[in-house]
Every structure is written in C-alpha cells, then in structure tokens.
Nucleic acid binder design. Structure first.
Length: 572
RNA sequence: GGGCCUGUAGCUCAAUGGUCAGAGCAGGGCGCUCAUAACGCCUUGGUUGGGGGUUCGAGUCCCUCCGGGCCUACCA
C-alpha cells in the first residue's frame, strides 16, 4: 500500500478567499487525496491557515480585534468553508499553533548550528504614528522617476521602476498616511540560501518530471543575476513565532518574530503534529510521515500550489530542510497552477470582483463549483471564469449527462419493475462491449488521476458517464421490455449498477452527489472497480433502492444573469 | 528593461518531430420516447497569430515580429 503525504498551499488568514485560491491548490489537492484513498492507499492530507505577517495585523486592527482573536475567528470561518466544499483534510491546522512555534524555532536553531544563519544589521523605515516598522510596499510617495504620487516603496505601479523606500519623494505610511517616518537601525537573521545554491540546483535538476511552470521559476531564482540570494527570515512584528534558537533565547533578537514565509511551510509538518495531538496519537504517528529515519522512507510527498508560491516551495523551504542537516522529508512532486481569471480580468479581493468562496456556496452546492473548477483547472495557462461557460458546462455535464442518466434509469425501473433491482437475463455482446469500453476508459482515468492531469481526468470521467447514456440508447430497455422482459431486467440491473460505479469513480470530483447516489442505491460499497465486470454485479437482484431527487438542478438563464450582475464588482 | 509561459474550430481545450490536426460545447440534420425539453447518431466548421529557417517530414525545433499572461526576491 502506497503512502501519500499531500499538502495544499496554506491560505492566508486575512479574509475569505475567492475561487481562484480554491482551484489553485486546495481543490486539486483534495481531488488527489480522495483518489488515493479510494484506491486504498494511506493518505495524510494537511492544510492550515497562514496567520502571521503584517496584513494579518492590519486586518485585525481594521476589524477592531486583537490579532490572536481575529485569527482564531477567521480560522473557524475558513475551516467551515473548507468543510462545506468537501475538502477532506486529515487536519486543518494553524501556523500560529504551539507545534509550529516549536518546530520553527527548532529549524532556526539547527540552521544556526550549521552556520547557515547570518545576522545582518540594516536600516528600515519606522512609522512613529503607526508604532511599527513598515514593509517597503506599505510606504507610499511620489515616484522620483515618473512623478506618480501613489508609488509604493518597492515599485512604482505607474512606470514599473523598482524602488527603494528612501527613493520616494514625500514618503508616507500607506496605513495611516502619516509622514512622521524615520529610518532606524534594526538587526535581522538571514537564511544563507546562497550557501545551499549548488545543492538546491542539483536537486531541482533531478526533478525532470515536474511541470515546466515549477522548475522554470525555481531555475530563474537560482540563476538570475548573482544567483540565489540570502533571505531575511525575521521581522519586527508582535504577532508571529518569537525568534529563538531551538528552545534557547537568541541574544539580540528579543521582541522579533520569524518571517511568515519562514514559518508557513514548516506548518505543513506542524499541522501533521497537530493532527496527532488532536487525535490523541503519539509523536511517532506523525513523525513517520516526515522523518526518513522514523518511517517516512516509503512516503511520496506531493505539494499543490499556485504559481506565486513556487519559489518558496522549491527553494526557501527545501533550504530550511536541507540546511537543518536532519533527515526530514523533501517534496517529491510539486503540482503548480496558473491563475483563474474572472470575466476577462483578475479576481480582486479589494474591488470585490469575482466570486468568493462563501458567496459561491450560498448560491449553488459545492459540487457545481468543484466540477467546473477542476474540469477547467488552469494547468497550462491561466483560465477564465465566465458565467456563460459555467452555466453551459455544469448544465450539460452534471445535469444532462450524469444527473439525467441516474434519473432515467431509476424512474424506468420504478415504473416497470418497482423500486427493486430486477431479476433475470444475462449479458449479451452489447454488455460485453460496454464492460470493455468502461474498462479502457477507467484505466485511462486512473492514469490521469495518478499523474494529476486534472482536466484530462475530468474529460475521461465525463466520457465514462456518456457510455451509460449510449448503452441505454442502444439497449433500449423500454423496447425490449415489450418483447423480452427478462432481457430488459438485465439491462436495467446493469444500468442501476452503473449508478454505484459512477458514484465511486466520481467521488473525488463531486463527493456530495456521489454520496447521494450511493444513498439512493442503498449501498455503502465504495470498492474501486479494478474488475469492471465484477463491479457491475455489486448490487444483486432483489436489492431495494430509491429514486433520488434531481441530482443537479439546472442553472437557469435568469439565475445566470442575476449572478453576473451581482458579482461584477464592488462587493456588498 | 530582463526572464518564463502562452497563442490550434465561434467557445473551452487535446495532439513522444511521423496517417487526413482531434474532443466537448455551441450551430445544422436525423433518430428515440425511459429521462431534468433530457439522451443517441450523423454533420458544418482550421493558411495551428504573421513571416522566415532546419528537416525526407514542423502545431511541435530555431530566428524574428505581433498579441495575452505571470515573475522580477520586504504582500503573502
């Protein structure tokens, strides 16, 4: 039995995410996790909220709440949304957990022991009015290059010139607008990634099967300019993991915390530890997923993320792990995604453009979104959400092809044989051909799922559904019933068994509908169809079932128009 | 500016350098009547963004131009 460790990029805490965040990491990760479990493999699927950093502090302040309270609340909100989308995390943790504090401090201590931490004294902008150091992009002013008056300290959005905050004319805090700024000396820890460049480079070069999107971004950072640069891993903030060297104080670093991007990936490990603690399991239960010397030798580790996360997962986090000198599990495969765009533009949290996760769930069941998003996953390039496409795809694939199949066969059986699987008859050539066609397509489906070819897997699954309609059309039990009721009984029995088969195969994509289908067939047999012929004998003659409610109601033109209007911008 | 990705049917996408560039949707025709006016079969539709080159052979490799997107290290 294979063992799969699966992590999804951890969503930031500062608000409810839009659909792009869902399709870029959590949803495909869930698809893969569900598939591997369905195949009988052992799976550890973890995710968490990413809770540290300046934006979290500012969002909390805006909400008028202490940051820890704000994060605890938002964690619950996000956990609830994730549950309602059917995201099957074994644990949904928090990067602010005590487990992550300990592990982050542990890694920093090991890196320091190995000479991979440098203490650097630098000058940063401090805002007296805000009482905090300001990250470059939180400083605004007039661009010295083009005169644009809302240039940010890292770059001018108008002329795209790279800037240093001290270049700005009349700089002010982007938070309060205060011009009472000063440059202060402050000391920070840097992770000496440059010292690990060769090792990282060879490691990346060995990953020849990774998506181009993943490796090209990594190589750019490794080779651009002077090569991989060291990265500051501490910040002058109140909220975060206090800087410590293992469990010891770090002289000179009092009052500082680790940089969010240092502790966030470590949360993958910590979330697994949180899982063990939450379930009353001893530490070796989680360590067997992460420590090569404690049982993780046969684990395959797959990460899912949007392309913006790639540098941290291909370089910074591996540098942390390799640099620790300890046998922690490195990622085996990184599946990265492009962006989902909304009606020709970007989803925008600030402008309320596009559909947010809570809104999506408030208008349609999760499976509608799961199906559309996964079958249109932005694998090769960015993909676009439009209401027309969404309505068309969902109505056709889910309502017409799958839902109507379930409806027509169950209702036909009820009217001719009652709500019990009918007896009699045996397979002819048509049924043999169907089994053969199903087998071919199911094997292809497995291959695509194994390879995380999400769109291709969706296409194949849809083609499997279509086979059911093709069979019914040519078998025509409504005709055979008139001349040969036994044959019609066999055809109907096969059709009803297809519903269970489809539920099992479709469950990674549309888990809620799959559950409804199994419930209607009054079975909980989720055995994977390694033998298709046997799988179609699962429900025997005499087995009672229910005609289910409409599985997928269609999206009407009126609904589509209303939603299009409602979500075009300026969130209520 | 630099780097990377991308451009294939009206739309969304496929195609280890090798038959006539294929699917789904949309459009058109026919069939069926079990079904959510659903399903099935057939079918229209292409100078693969433009131009040049390498090759026996290019959607695929090279050069160049045009369009779209992303990244560029203190947002995460």
């Amino acid at each position: 039995m294979a063992r799969h460790l699966i992590t999804s990029a951890i969503p930031y805490i500062n608000g409810i995410k839009h659909l792009g965040n869902l399709v870029g990491s959590q949803l495909p990760a869930d698809l893969f996790a569900r598939f591997q479990r369905a195949r009988g493999n052992e799976v550890m699927f973890v995710c968490a909220t990413d809770e540290h950093g300046t934006p979290a502090e500012l969002a909390a302040a805006k909400a008028g709440k202490p940051v820890d309270v704000f994060c605890a609340e938002m964690h619950q909100v996000q956990a609830n949304i994730a549950r309602r989308f059917g995201l099957s995390f074994d644990h949904f943790g928090r990067s602010s957990s005590p487990q992550n504090h300990r592990l982050t401090q542990h890694f920093a201590g090991k890196l320091a022991e190995n000479g991979l931490i440098a203490e650097v004294s630098e000058r940063q902008v401090y805002s007296n009015a805000d009482g905090r150091f300001l990250p470059d992009r939180y400083i605004e002013g007039t661009c010295p290059n083009c005169g644009y008056d809302k240039a940010r300290g890292d770059q001018c959005e108008n002329c795209t010139k790279q800037l240093d905050p001290t270049d700005l004319i009349e700089p002010r805090s982007a938070i309060s607008g205060s011009t009472d700024l000063e440059v202060r000396e402050t000391k920070h820890l840097y992770l000496r990634q440059s010292a690990l460049r060769q090792e990282l480079s060879e490691w990346i070069d060995s990953k020849t099967d990774w998506p181009i999107l993943t490796t090209s971004i990594a190589k750019k950072w490794l080779n651009d300019g002077e090569g991989l640069q060291d990265r500051g891993i501490t910040r002058d903030l109140d909220w975060g993991v206090p800087v410590k060297k293992g469990d010891q104080p770090w002289p000179g670093m009092e009052g500082k915390v680790f940089y969010v991007w240092f502790d966030a990936p470590i949360e993958y490990i910590a979330a697994t530890a949180e899982w063990a603690d939450a379930n009353g399991k001893p530490a070796d239960e989680w360590r067997r997923w992460w420590r090569l010397d404690e049982g993780a030798g046969d684990v395959r580790y797959t990460q899912f993320m949007g392309k913006d996360n790639v540098p941290f997962h291909t370089l910074s986090f591996p540098a942390t792990i390799i640099g620790s000198g300890e046998p922690w599990k490195l990622v085996d495969y990184i599946k990265s995604f492009n962006y989902l765009t909304y009606d020709g533009g970007q989803f925008s949290t600030s402008q309320g453009r596009g559909v947010f996760q809570d809104q999506a769930l408030s208008i349609l069941p999760a499976d509608y979104w799961r199906w559309w998003l996964l079958s249109h996953a932005p694998e090769g390039s960015d993909s676009e959400f439009t209401w027309e496409n969404f309505q068309q795809s969902v109505n056709k694939d889910l309502a017409d092809v799958l839902g109507n199949f379930v409806s027509r066969i169950t209702k036909f059986c009820r009217s001719k044989f009652g709500e019990t699987i009918p007896e009699g008859g045996s397979y002819g050539p048509e049924e043999q051909a169907l089994v053969q066609a199903l087998t071919t397509r199911i094997r292809a489906y497995e291959g695509f799922m194994e390879a995380m070819e999400v769109r291709k897997a969706a296409n194949e699954l849809r083609a499997i559904w279509v086979l059911g309609n093709e069979y019914l059309q040519s078998a025509a039990p409504w005709s055979t019933f008139k001349t040969d009721p036994e044959k019609a009984a066999m055809q109907v029995r096969l059709g009803l068994n297809l519903i269970r088969l489809y539920a099992v195969l479709s469950q990674p994509f549309i888990p809620f509908a799959a559950d409804s289908m199994l419930a209607a067939m009054r079975t909980d047999d989720r055995a994977w169809p390694d033998d298709v012929s046997a799988a179609l004998d699962t429900l025997p003659a005499g087995h009672a079932f229910d005609v289910p409610e409409v599985l997928f109601a269609k999206i009407t033109d009126e609904q589509r128009d209303e939603w299009q209007e409602r979500f075009k911008g300026a969130r209520a």
